[in-house]
Nucleic acid binder design. Structure first.
Length: 870
RNA sequence: GGGCGGUUAGCUCAGCUGGUAGAGCAUCGGUUUUACACGCCGGGUGUCAGAGGUUCAAACCCUCUACCGCCCA
């Protein structure tokens, strides 16, 4: 084996071999309890980012352990067509390369181009996913816009339409003038912006010298005003209700209405009503039967029955023009700076334009309650628990979902319009004639569905619900969904509604919510900020295993991760450490190691390491079961480094001629590989192949579990005592600047007979680890050469001086330590004198007293030594 | 306006049911001991944001405050 671990070599080829061996493809017949996870499909917009590395690695770690535990595991991959995002990218690309717009190309050609883009992007993404080592079953891979998915999405849409849950209606929706499509409420981000509040005088029709002042941040919308509203109980305006305003610039007469929704505190207390361009005004208009005058079009340009000079102006240009004209007429009361919340397109950050239009909606009134109830009843569990509150809060206030989009890339809405009788036909098959009038002049709705619509169906459609396939029956409901909190509403909530409605059960039993990955300063990563970390760079430099381990050990559920590259580096060192531990073990194997061993024949360190490893397996399993992967990873890390390498391998060097010890070396190495395999699949596989036992691949072996026959409390206690004495000897040597390599004589004294006998029997370990030339355990230090002293529970250590300077140094050190202990003991005794002794549980007091006694003993020993040396 | 997080060693973070604080990196001293210098041995480092409360005992529970961040309306 090479002296250091080469992750590039190891990670190059294993994936192909795993895949070829079909390790990730579950057999048709269940071989155990089913366990399934559906991969949140990455968008085909480009490449994976570091956030994906987290949401991909965590379930993979879980999946690999489940496989090793004998579950019948499915981990199903897919990619998402990502409507808006992809279409915009392709459009941008097209513009850059040929200067053409998608309209220049036409729908069909543009879609063809997008499909080509999708193929390239998908290839890239799949390649990246494989680099991470994910145990995905590629034979079952899905794409949200495949023919199969188009069929099932259409089937679902038609079913919902027939149930009256999908409907077409003219309502106020959010429109992005840049993306040229409507958006759902969720795709709108509210951001505070610095605006101006303009107070405009609206003259009364009856007496143009008197006016009502209205305040607005959007003066250009006044061209579409149909009323002025005041609170019916507002004494300032009560008498004006029913009167009319002569709307400036247009000359239209509009009424003053009273409405309880008016906020009396805002501006002057009177508000202008523009129903076509403001959601609140829209509601007011509905109540009062006011007309809706559209004055801004889809591209945010002025339109409609307005003075010609404004027609075609951009909304912001028109705003300036309107204010200027009003000022010229002396109708601006005042203008003031004003900070307010404005909706922005999540995708392109353009200010959205509220706008009335005819769109398709999904009625949520009947879908949401079962989804709420399922979580309340514990059929789906959020981890951590607190996220269910977020879920409830949203679900209980859910609005109907606008599902149509003015895009080309997506599931085309299966609605057809008859040109003759205007009948709307929604059906699974394309109709050839109008069922009402028999006319053949039909055209399909131009719009496509919101991408999240197909995503909402993902857990059951990927498993073949539409054809009642065996996978659906075996793996639905899926076991777990791992995702970040930012898509609880977009995705998790909607999967719950659709899964329950069509799949007749919750889509997943558990939802593991992880945080976002930030940079090492805690800043959100973004390309524009330039602080984004490319997972492939990390993998190239440190390895997928190191990256996976770093993410796992930091992934406290629901908490953001600040990814410090230094940590990845640290865990890369860990991979090398494991490599070398394995190298040591394998180098020393002779092939004659017994397959089974009798505990009685094992050395104390052998039994100690088996005991420790067994305890580790128990805790690691508990960590996994409670989704504390970070804890499981941390425990393994410390066991391997601090116990296995630092102590057991060192102990074993004294026993290499024992076949039993060599057998234990081999077994413990295997167990470590198994425990670590979910986190570090490549490294562990590479090493496993060199000590391979009965199974071809590590993932086919059994994940270690706690076993009662591997509990050895006596050996454990003996070795722990031995470690303490060795550690204290080392400390004494270092503190006194005894050359690390120098072998010197050591005298030991012990207060506990059992420990003394045990150490006497294990002197070879002690001598080796503390570099003792010759060790003598004596009853009494008197009569021996004077020396440095070390003290630990039950033991005193004497390392003879080589000159008198040594003695002076030691005396000084001992006096200092004596003082320290004095203070500590005083503190502890004071505590014991207080209420602590009366009220604390007996066990705690006992432990405390033990610690106190140890301190007192140690102080006494030091005191004696000081006298002795003086 | 409502809600949720965070504030612990120089940096990034753990700390599960309250029992005198830990990891990685960095740092300091020593060390090429026959698996590993990506190593080994040893060390230093903290008014656990602040104030108050509950308790024998608080990083942990309660209240308030400050700052940072997020979500919803």
């Amino acid at each position: 084996m090479e002296k250091s671990y080469d992750h590039l070599r190891t990670e190059a080829d294993w994936y192909r071999r795993w895949e070829e061996a079909g390790l990730f493809t579950p057999a048709p017949e269940p071989t155990g309890i089913p366990f399934s996870i559906i991969l949140p499909p990455p968008n085909v917009t480009g490449s994976l980012h570091i956030g994906h590395a987290l949401t991909l690695s965590l379930p993979d770690i879980i999946v690999r352990r489940k496989k090793m535990q004998g579950f019948h595991v499915l981990w199903l991959p897919g990619v998402d067509h990502a409507g808006i995002a992809t279409q915009m990218m392709v459009e941008k690309n097209l513009k850059q390369e040929t200067g053409q717009s998608k309209e220049d190309l036409g729908r069909e050609k543009f879609l063809q181009l997008t499909w080509e883009w999708k193929e390239r992007s998908q290839q890239q993404i799949v390649g990246q996913i494989k680099k991470l080592g994910l145990a995905l079953d590629w034979t079952r891979m899905k794409f949200t816009l495949s023919d199969e998915m188009q069929r099932v999405v259409r089937k679902v849409f038609v079913a919902l339409y027939r149930e009256g849950k999908v409907y077409q209606g003219t309502y106020m929706v959010n429109r992005c003038p840049n993306c040229k499509t409507v958006l759902s409420d969720l795709e709108v981000e509210h951001k505070e912006v610095q605006g101006r509040l303009t107070h405009i005088r609206y003259p009364l029709r009856s007496d143009p010298r008197r006016w009502v002042v209205v305040a607005t941040t959007r003066p250009e919308t006044m061209l579409g005003d149909v009323a002025v509203a005041v609170h019916p109980k507002d004494p300032r305006y009560k008498k004006r209700i029913g009167q009319e305003i002569l709307l400036p610039l247009t000359g239209r007469a509009i009424p003053i209405v009273g409405d309880e929704d008016v906020d009396r505190e805002f501006g002057s207390g009177a508000v202008k009503v523009t129903p076509a361009h403001d959601p609140v005004d829209f509601r007011i208009a509905l109540k009062h039967g006011l007309e809706k005058i559209v004055v801004i079009d889809e591209r945010a340009r002025m339109t409609g029955p307005i003075p010609e000079r404004y027609l075609g102006l951009d909304r912001f240009a028109c705003r300036r023009a309107v204010v200027e004209d009003l000022r010229a007429q002396g109708l601006i009361e005042k203008e003031e700076d004003y900070v307010h919340n404005v909706g922005h397109c999540q995708r392109c950050e353009t200010m959205v334009e509220p706008n009335i239009s005819k769109q398709w909606f999904l009625r949520t009134a009947e879908l949401a309650p079962p989804a709420i109830e399922a979580v309340r009843a514990g059929e789906t569990v959020f981890i951590p628990d607190k996220w269910k509150k977020v879920y409830f809060n949203w679900m209980e206030n859910i609005q109907d979902w606008c599902i149509s989009r003015q895009l080309w890339w997506g599931h085309r809405i299966p609605a057809f319009y008859c040109a003759d009788c205007h009948e709307v036909i929604v059906s699974e098959q394309d109709p050839s004639a109008c069922p009402k009038c028999g006319g053949a002049r039909l055209h399909q709705d131009e719009d496509v569905l919101d991408t999240w619509f197909s995503s909402a169906l993902w857990p059951f459609t990927t498993l073949g619900w539409q054809d009642d396939r065996a996978d659906f029956r075996t793996f639905y409901p899926t076991s777990l969904m791992v995702t970040a909190f930012d898509i609880i509403f977009f995705w998790v909530a909607r999967m719950m509604m659709m899964g329950l409605h069509f799949g007749k059960a919750v889509p997943f039993r558990e939802v593991l919510i992880n945080g976002l990955i930030r940079d090492e300063k805690g800043q959100k990563m973004s390309k524009t900020k330039g602080n984004a970390v490319d997972p492939l760079d990390i993998i190239r430099e440190y390895g997928a295993d190191a990256l996976r381990f770093t993410l796992a050990i930091q992934a406290v559920p629901g908490m953001d991760i600040a990814l410090a590259v230094g940590r990845v580096k640290g865990y890369k060192a860990f991979t090398n450490k494991i490599w070398n531990a394995a190298r040591y073990v394998i180098m020393n194997l002779k092939g004659d190691e017994p397959a089974a061993f009798a505990p009685a024949r094992l050395s104390a360190p052998d039994r100690w390491v088996l005991h420790r490893l067994n305890a580790l397996a128990e805790k690691v399993n508990a960590g996994f079961d409670e989704y504390r992967l970070y804890e499981a990873a941390d425990l393994i890390y410390h066991f391997v480094w601090d116990e296995y390498c630092d102590w057991y391998l060192e102990f074993s060097k004294s026993d290499l001629d024992s076949p039993d010890t060599r057998a234990v070396l081999k077994l413990t190495l295997l167990r470590i590989l198994q425990l670590l395999h979910p986190f570090m699949p490549y490294l562990t596989e590479e090493i496993y192949q060199r000590i391979r036992l009965e199974r071809a691949f590590l993932i086919q072996t059994e994940f270690p579990a706690f076993r009662s026959e591997l509990v050895f409390p006596e050996a454990h206690a003996e070795v722990e005592a031995l470690r303490r004495v060795v550690a204290e000897t080392r400390r004494t040597r270092t503190e006194n600047r005894i050359e690390p390599n120098k072998r010197i004589p050591v005298y030991l004294r012990c207060d506990a007979e059992a420990e003394r006998r045990s150490l006497q029997a294990h002197l070879k370990y002690y001598d080796f680890l503390s570099r003792s030339q010759r060790t003598e355990i004596v009853d009494d230090f008197s009569g021996l050469p004077k020396g440095f002293r070390g003290v630990c529970p039950n033991w005193e250590i004497l390392l003879p001086f080589t000159d008198d300077q040594d003695r002076q140094r030691e005396l000084q050190r001992l006096r200092q330590e004596h003082d320290k202990l004095d203070k500590l003991i005083a503190q502890m005794e004071a505590k014991l004198g207080g209420g602590f002794a009366e009220k604390a549980p007996a066990e705690v007091i006992l432990n405390f007293k033990k610690n106190l006694q140890e301190a007192i003993d140690k102080r006494a020993k030091i005191a004696r030594t000081v006298v002795d040396l003086s």
